[in-house]
Amino acid sequence: MLSVPCRGVIRRQRIVVEEIFLVPQVFNSSLGSIQANPKAVADLAKSYGTDMVIITGMYRFDYSSEEDVLNLARKLNKADQALQKEGVQLLYHNHNCELQHINDSQTAYDLIIENTDPAYVNFEFDSYWIANGGDPIQSLQVSGQYMDKAFR
């Protein structure tokens, strides 16, 4: 997995990738970068030979707020629509922070899955974090249909 680097790092990163014959399968970015310039993110991912961009759980994000989580799901849908216009797919990588309960029966992860369009947003299931904060079998049963691109 490669991350969207600062401009000065791009050249060095590409040299290292080529020197060790690394073939990236996915490219790591942030939601903010995708929202600001989806074409640039897509072009950078494609320049490394991948058509998948992953974003991870949001830093300093309130996963206990239903309104915020639903807004995140809307943003993920829009971000992937923008990336797909450039021939790139969005995947969301979970951590245990998404396993906070919003109510008695749903976690933030449940809401993200239920409110993202599988035609656009896909998931990279990180079983370590799910096992750390939840039930991986139950999570797979609920979210498995959304994970046709990547599984970890």
Rank of each mutant, 00 (worst) to 15 (best):
3 S>I: 12
4 V>K: 03
5 P>S: 07
5 P>L: 02
5 P>H: 04
10 I>G: 12
10 I>L: 15
12 R>L: 00
13 Q>T: 01
13 Q>F: 05
15 I>V: 12
16 V>I: 12
16 V>Y: 14
16 V>P: 13
18 E>S: 02
19 E>D: 15
19 E>Q: 15
20 I>V: 10
21 F>R: 09
21 F>H: 10
22 L>N: 08
23 V>Y: 03
23 V>M: 09
24 P>F: 08
25 Q>P: 09
25 Q>H: 10
27 F>T: 06
28 N>K: 08
28 N>A: 06
30 S>I: 09
31 L>E: 02
32 G>M: 05
32 G>A: 05
32 G>R: 03
33 S>R: 07
35 Q>I: 11
38 P>E: 02
39 K>P: 04
41 V>M: 10
44 L>N: 04
46 K>R: 12
46 K>E: 06
46 K>G: 12
47 S>Q: 11
48 Y>W: 05
49 G>L: 03
49 G>I: 13
51 D>G: 15
52 M>I: 12
53 V>I: 13
54 I>S: 00
54 I>Y: 00
56 T>P: 08
57 G>D: 14
57 G>H: 04
57 G>P: 06
59 Y>C: 06
63 Y>F: 11
64 S>R: 03
65 S>M: 03
66 E>D: 09
68 D>K: 04
70 L>W: 00
74 R>F: 14
74 R>T: 13
75 K>R: 04
75 K>D: 15
76 L>I: 06
77 N>S: 13
77 N>R: 01
78 K>L: 13
78 K>Q: 13
79 A>T: 07
80 D>K: 00
82 A>F: 03
86 E>H: 11
86 E>R: 12
87 G>R: 10
88 V>R: 02
91 L>M: 05
92 Y>T: 05
92 Y>H: 04
93 H>M: 10
93 H>G: 03
95 H>A: 06
95 H>I: 07
96 N>S: 08
96 N>A: 09
96 N>T: 05
96 N>G: 11
98 E>Q: 00
98 E>D: 00
98 E>I: 05
99 L>I: 02
105 S>R: 09
106 Q>W: 02
108 A>K: 03
110 D>K: 01
110 D>A: 05
113 I>E: 05
114 E>P: 11
115 N>R: 12
116 T>I: 04
116 T>M: 09
117 D>K: 13
118 P>E: 07
118 P>D: 08
119 A>L: 10
120 Y>R: 04
122 N>V: 09
123 F>W: 00
124 E>W: 11
127 S>D: 08
127 S>L: 09
127 S>I: 10
130 I>G: 00
130 I>L: 07
132 N>M: 12
132 N>Y: 14
133 G>E: 05
134 G>I: 03
136 P>C: 10
136 P>R: 06
137 I>T: 06
137 I>S: 10
139 S>K: 08
139 S>N: 08
144 G>H: 03
146 Y>V: 09
147 M>E: 14
148 D>Y: 11
150 A>N: 09
150 A>C: 13
151 F>Y: 06
